[in-house]
Structures are given as structure tokens and as C-alpha cells.
Design a protein around this nucleic acid. Sequence first.
RNA 1: GGGAGAGUGUCCCGAGUGGCAAAGGGGGGGGACUGUAAAUCCCCUGCUUUACGGCUUCGUAGGUUCGAGUCCUACCUCUCCCA
Length: 412
Amino acid sequence: MTTLASDFLNILTSRGYIHQCSDIPGLDALAAKRDVTAYIGFDCTAPSLHVGSLVQIMMLHWLQQTGNQPIVLMGGGTTRVGDPSGRDESRKILSLEDIENNKRGIQNVFAKFLQFGSASPAAAMVDNAEWLTKLNYIEMLRDVGKHFSVNRMLAMDSVKLRLEREHELSFIEFNYMVLQAYDYVELARRYGCNLQMGGSDQWGNIVNGIDLGRRMGTHQLYALTSPLITLSSGAKMGKTASGAVWLNADMRSPYEYWQFWRNTEDADVGRFLKLFTTLPMAEIAKLEALGGAEINEAKKALANAATALLHGKAAAEEAAETARKTFEEGASAAGLPTFNLNLPIGILQAAVAVGFVKSNGEAKRAIANGAIRLNDVQVQDEKAAISESDLNADGVAKLSSGKKKHVLIKRT
RNA sequence: GGGAGAGUGUCCCGAGUGGCAAAGGGGGGGGACUGUAAAUCCCCUGCUUUACGGCUUCGUAGGUUCGAGUCCUACCUCUCCCA
């Protein structure tokens, strides 16, 4: 392993962001001169990004921190087509309004991690709908299509997988890689972009772009991918009981976000500290060295730092304090998710209303399993109700499901 | 266009003989043990204001039958072979 000259690659390497790179020495030389302009594409398939995209966002963050220019590419155009990578079923084709709404929801997150506007290498945000929607089919085929070999396209993982598993791959999806490759060329021409980053599943698409660039006469392009982040237990990261861990605060509160990180498995703490926080490596090494129950301190540090990055320091501290009161003192911390309900209300309805369970039947089962507690007292009777007398001096009652889910109930 | 197969419990895989709320996994939830961890063990995993009750589920729509996931017809979608 040769030593790296650039801060950018040094950081990415030591923190574990790199899975594959088309040309480390070449990219290193560029980054050392702070001449890298890199982009990552984000599909607009949901109204918010989730933690799965965080690695990518952090790569852009470090890129800017080390004096290079990040470009956030919103997939306003490519989302209309749908990326078949890593899926064995066709994506639903989203309506244009949905895509537009999703795009708006996603955009704001980047301001937390990147500096746009007046910063010295300012981050930029562009939407590939800008050029993709204007393409003319015949021209496209002649200028771009001629550089693609179907033989090679068929050999690509995203395609091969579908074919091998005998799942359908529609022509529209088959074209996705062409559009993504073209994006890269377009960004190279417009912004002098010379690096595309992405998750490891994007490798094929990115390399296609490099190839296309060479054939269409752009400057040398580079590819860099991050490893797919999985939990030590093998599960995919970012999914919890109640669905994806969204980054937008209105879809996943700072408190819940903090909890997500707090519940990290022991074996993942060090890795996550490096990937998802900006804590200095020396400090991470210390935290990582903690053993046994002490590793919980490292988890708190992870939760604090990660939440502060996304939601700000104040929100992180508040979440930490709420968690401390709730879990270490068993108190009804004011920062817990709060619901206003009409009292009295049956315990079953209440459990449904706060989102613990999806139906009354499920609530009954939860009670039978001893999962539901009201003000820390296990509910035995499914006909029980929450009434005024259950509220404490501050007018709230604490309802819990299992050991980790707690909410506060107030009178409407 | 011709021929052969497939679509099952609104997360996934997957058994299924005319009596089926439908085997078994995975995933998920809960409990025990712990440290808000992992591993392990146990329980739960269609809806319904009690129910050995009612209702809704096996691609869609009809039909046969006391009774249909299971049989028949048409249609939709996918896969494979031929053209």
C-alpha cells in the first residue's frame, strides 16, 4: 500500500469509506491539488433520504472539508426511469408530481452536511432532469447509444441478476445505465466533474460513465465506491421495526434518530463512529477500546455526534437528556414523543393511536405478552383505560411498549 | 402469433388432497437472560368493543358445488420453448 498524498483519500481510507476505486494514485494526485469535483446521484424515490444514504453524504462532506468541490445530483430525470441495480423486481414508475415532491423533501438535508453558496469550494446541487428531459431519441442513439455494447450491458450485474433469476427487466430500466453514464459525461462537460462516487452497487454504472467519457472525449474520469454497510448481524442497515430510518425530522424525530444510533450493536460501534461522525480518529480509538458495559458510552458518543450532525447540537443534547431520564431514571421525560388524546381512552385504542401496534388485535396480543405498560405499571387487562387520574402533576401519562418504546399521552 | 408453466396469508420465501384462517421457514414484535448490545431459550405474528360468533384473505372476474386456494370459463401479469 503506497502512502497517499491527499487529505481526502487519507481520510476516506482510514475511516473505511472506500470499497473500490478506478485509479487510486491518479485520483490521489488530483485530490492533493484540490482539483477534484465529485458528484453523487440521489434518486427521488421517497420524500426523504434514510441512513442508507448517509455514507454517500458523508463522502461529499469530507470531500468539501478537504478543499474539493462536491456536487449533489438530484435524480429528477433518472428517477422517471428507475434504477434496476440491486433489485429483482421492477420499480413502480413514479408520477412526475411524486418525483417533484420527493425531490423537495430530499434537498434540505444536504445543507446540514455541505456548504452551498459562498463557501470557497461551494457545493452545488443540480437536477439531471435539466438535460435528460431534453434529449432527442434519435440524436441520443447516434451520439451516445453507439458507444454502448449490448453484449457488455447484458453482462452487468444489475442486468445479469434479473436474467438469471428469470425476473423481468423492462426496456425502460435497461436504459437506466445509459442515462447515468450520460449524466457523468454531462457533468464533466458542464462542471468539470472528474469523480463519481456511490454505493458499491453503483460500480458498474459509474464505470460505464468513465468509459462513455473516454469515448466521447472528456477528460479522465474516476470512480470511487463505498462498501455496502451492513450490521454485524448481517441485517441491512437502516431498517427498524417501524420502517426506514429517515433523515427528515418530520418523518423521524431527533429523539428517535438518537435512539437508532444508541441501539447500535457492539461490534458496529467503531465502524459507525468512523463513518457517521466527524470525531477525530484518536477519540474514536479510545471509545472503541471500551469493553463490556462501558461500550455504552461509545454508543452514546455515536448517537450524540451523529444526531448533532443531522439535527444540530441542541437537538442532540435534548435527545440524550430525554434518553437519560427515560432509561436511567425511568422518569417521564418531556422530550419523548407526545400524543394528545381524548380521555378516557381504552388502552387498545391508545396503543394503536400512538403507533405501537397496527390493530386492536395486535394490541391485545401485546398485552397478553406483558408488553404494554402505563406509567411503568404493566397493563394486565385489555379493557383498561387511560383516564385523567393517570396523568401526573404535569398532565402527562407515560405509555410504553416493550422496553424501548415510550410515549407521553396528554389530554386533548 | 403457436406451445408449455407460474402467480398463495397486502414484508419475503414457500407447502397445499374440494371441508382452510390455510403447513413450514425467514423477517418482525414481545418475554427471560444482559448493558437500551450480540448469542441463546420461550411466546406471538388476518380483521373484528368479550366470542367454540361474525367478516375478509390464495393474480382478476364469473361459474360448478351444501362447501373452492384446490374443479370449469374468460381475462391480466410473468417465465420458458418455438415463430
